[in-house]
């Protein structure tokens, strides 16, 4: 890429291209002929020949990580189904938007180990419980395979998750198979973690389209009715100023607190046990209150700037509003509590 020249920007915009809707788009994608099908198959076959070698490496205490261009799902699925059949296997979709470490550990504990353990406790506690379980001599499950597609996925990137995964991987009876796609995936691992993972790297370039991996992303060229997903909101927030993000954060925190308290109240009265009874719009913040809070936090100086920021959020349908009976405007983010927490965790304020 030419990074040093003066860049000449073009005046063309995407809006001059026709917008597709979902069905049209699917029809077209289906009709596109696949290039180099034979060669790609050959490539996959060549990779398949290495299955015994990979298995050999796994049984000798190494963990496998796969890189290279192209979706690795099919090949690794095949590997798991043909070779890793003798022991329980956990498959994790790293690109799945709501996958989390807690989720993974809960699956291991509930569906595989099936032993009573304290349900409470941090992920670290769960991790060490699983680790100890697979060190015990009298365990019911001999060994465990974990297959993680996109261990560099957005939800698994955090320090804590990778540390816990590395602790699991360092157990000689837990075998980890993972794929990475991000070009800088190697930066996830520092010295300590890398040595715990004990990776052996394999290049499996397949040229397969990333269909499953991108199905959670949204295209700009397809018309949508729905509002932005979490990923979209994160993108928008990432491009805004720090103050604007601050406004979002204040609203977000209020809403989370609101949901928790109303859930607690509900539980206390025994009416409903789950928090999906609480709608986001019920726990929104009044316009005036939010403005005051933002002023106190030095995020906006006057009503006008506040309104401008709000408009920005409204345009992207990140913040929505409704009128109460008495005419006050309630602002809210149309997301659930978990999603809000997720966004707060991922964003830097």
């Amino acid at each position: 890429m030419n990074l040093y020249d003066v860049s000449h920007t073009s005046n063309n915009t995407l809006s001059s291209l026709p917008i597709l809707d979902q069905t049209e788009y699917i029809d077209i994608v289906k009709s596109v002929q696949i290039k180099h099908k034979a060669e790609r198959n050959l490539l996959v076959q060549l990779h398949q020949r290495q299955f015994p070698q990979w298995y050999f490496e796994l049984t000798n205490g190494f963990n496998l990580v796969f890189y290279g261009y192209g979706s690795k799902r099919q090949l690794l699925t095949l590997f798991a189904k043909t070779v890793l059949k003798d022991k329980p296997l956990l498959v994790v979709n790293g690109c799945f938007p709501s996958v989390s470490l807690k989720n993974i550990l809960a699956n291991i504990l509930d569906s595989i180990i099936k032993e009573s353990h304290g349900t409470s406790g941090s992920v670290e506690d769960h991790t060490s419980f699983i680790f100890d379980y697979f060190c015990r001599a009298d365990r019911a499950i001999d060994r465990l395979y974990i297959l993680i597609f996109n261990i560099d996925g957005v939800n698994l990137r955090s320090e804590r998750t990778q540390t816990c995964l590395s602790i699991l991987a360092s157990n000689p009876n837990i075998h980890l198979v993972a794929s990475v796609d991000h070009i800088n995936a190697g930066l996830l691992y520092d010295n300590v973690r890398a040595s715990r993972f004990n990776w052996v790297w394999h290049d499996i370039t397949t040229y397969e389209p990333y269909i499953a991996e991108t199905s959670f992303e949204n295209s700009i060229m397809i018309r949508r009715e729905k509002a932005l997903g979490i990923r979209g909101i994160e993108h928008v927030l990432g491009s805004l100023t720090e103050n604007a993000r601050g406004i979002f954060k204040i609203l977000c925190e209020h809403q989370i607190a609101g949901i928790s308290t109303s859930t607690a109240n509900n539980d206390g009265h025994g009416t409903s046990g789950k928090n999906h009874g609480v709608k986001p719009e019920d726990v929104g913040v009044a316009y005036g209150v939010l403005y005051k809070k933002c002023r106190e936090a030095w995020l906006v100086s006057n009503d006008l700037t506040f309104k401008t920021q709000l408009t920005e959020f409204r345009d992207h349908q990140i913040i929505q509003s409704r009128r109460m009976a008495d005419g006050t405007e309630i602002l809210y983010i149309p997301l659930s509590k978990d999603q809000l927490i997720n966004i707060l965790d991922n964003l830097e304020f």
Binding site: I26, K30, R73, T77, L89, L90, N107, I211, S215
Partner: peptide, 23 residues
């Protein structure tokens, strides 16, 4: 969007983790 292609068994829009017990 997974209707685009024949889905593989671990591609789901509701679950991120799958457990397979040995055969």
């Amino acid at each position: 969007m997974s209707e685009i292609q024949a889905r593989d068994p671990f591609d789901s829009i509701t679950k991120g983790c799958f457990v397979i017990l040995p055969g």
